[in-house]
């Protein structure tokens, strides 16, 4: 049963549009799926390999700009950007990884944070290539209907899920976890830590970049403040994984549901005004304090907590 759970979930998700959701709900669902891809990608690097990146906006933005520049400079459909971004982001991740992967712990975190910001300011200033702060706008999006976008992003998500699962359950996955638990020990056992960290970073970056290219197609407009955002992209990504469950398969999905779906719901509570952010912030604090490994990671604990609540 448990073995088939992912397939059942996928089947359920793929018939979701057939029950007649409003375009508003479809938009939210698409965002949830997109964010869970980014979450899964981050999880591979952060959750399994232990390299906590604060700069996933860099990959997201490079992916989005690959599609955008393809459209604005060559007049090609930005959908080709989804494919091209695989190449571009791989090269980009490799170069970036060469620089930042020498660092450890908080230093790595801060260096990645800086890399995201550097990319943002570069995109702002390189006006001839990126269009600067005016951004890139697609004149007409491919479809009005959301269903195609949904199936495309769902397909990417499914591929991401199985790829991450395969990787983690392979020999590579064990190396990743070994690096996370004790890098020095892993090295002394003969694991080429730099190599495996680079692999994790590249795959993680590429998956995030694909999501970025999709974002360009879906939203039809990008500018540096939107796609290279520190808070709205990089940190939200980490929150999705941390809230959902670090180093779990389903954590990013659960996290995305909370960070997008629940956030939208809290935002929509009538009469709350600016207070919705306070409420949501408090919710995050509570989750981190009581479920430090996230909802999926601490599922048993969560069950116990709720169970206690019922008997008393």
């Amino acid at each position: 049963m448990k073995k088939y759970f992912p397939l059942i979930a996928l089947a359920l998700l793929s018939i979701l549009p057939l029950i007649g959701l409003s375009t508003y709900m479809m938009h939210i669902v698409i965002l949830v799926v997109m964010w869970s891809i980014i979450g899964m990608a981050w999880n591979l690097l952060g959750g399994y390999c232990g390299q906590v990146s604060f700069g996933h906006a860099a990959y997201f933005g490079v992916g989005a700009y690959t599609a955008g520049i393809l459209y604005s400079k060559l007049g090609a459909s930005p959908w080709w950007g989804v494919l091209l971004s695989i190449v571009v982001v791989t090269i980009f991740s490799f170069i970036l990884g060469y620089v930042v992967l020498r660092l450890r712990g908080p230093f790595f975190a801060l260096a990645t944070l800086a890399s995201g910001e550097v990319m943002r300011v570069t995109a702002e200033n390189w006006v001839g290539f990126t269009g600067g702060t005016l951004g890139i706008m697609v004149h007409e999006r491919t479809w009005v209907e959301k269903i195609w976008y949904y199936y495309i992003i769902l397909l990417i998500a499914a591929v991401t899920y199985f790829l991450v699962k395969k990787l983690v359950e392979s020999k590579l996955g064990y190396y990743f976890v070994a690096i996370r638990e004790d890098q020095d020990a892993a090295e002394s056992l003969g694991i080429n830590t730099t190599l495996y960290k680079t692999i994790a970073l590249c795959i993680s970056g590429v998956l995030t970049g694909i999501a970025g290219a999709f974002y360009m197609n879906y939203m039809g407009y990008i500018d540096p403040h939107v796609v290279f955002a520190l808070h709205d992209i990089s940190i939200i990504t980490i929150m999705i994984v941390m809230v959902g469950g670090v180093a779990t398969y389903w954590g990013p999905f659960v996290g995305a549901v909370i960070m997008v779906f629940l956030a939208e719901w809290v935002r929509s509570i009538p009469g709350l005004g600016a207070a919705h952010q306070t409420l949501f912030g408090v919710l995050l604090i509570v989750i981190i304090i009581f479920l430090p490994n996230g909802i999926v990671g601490d599922y048993k604990k969560l069950k116990r907590l709720v169970g206690l609540g019922r008997t008393s």
Binding site: S22, T23, Y24, M26, H27, I28, L31, M219, Y221, V226, D232, E264, R267, S268, P270, G273, A274, H276
Partner: peptide
Amino acid sequence: LTFEDSQGKPEISRAIAEKLIDV
């Protein structure tokens, strides 16, 4: 009048627009 907070983020503005039109 009711006001919806878009937080200055395009994807939330879009969500609001979709909601107003469709729901």
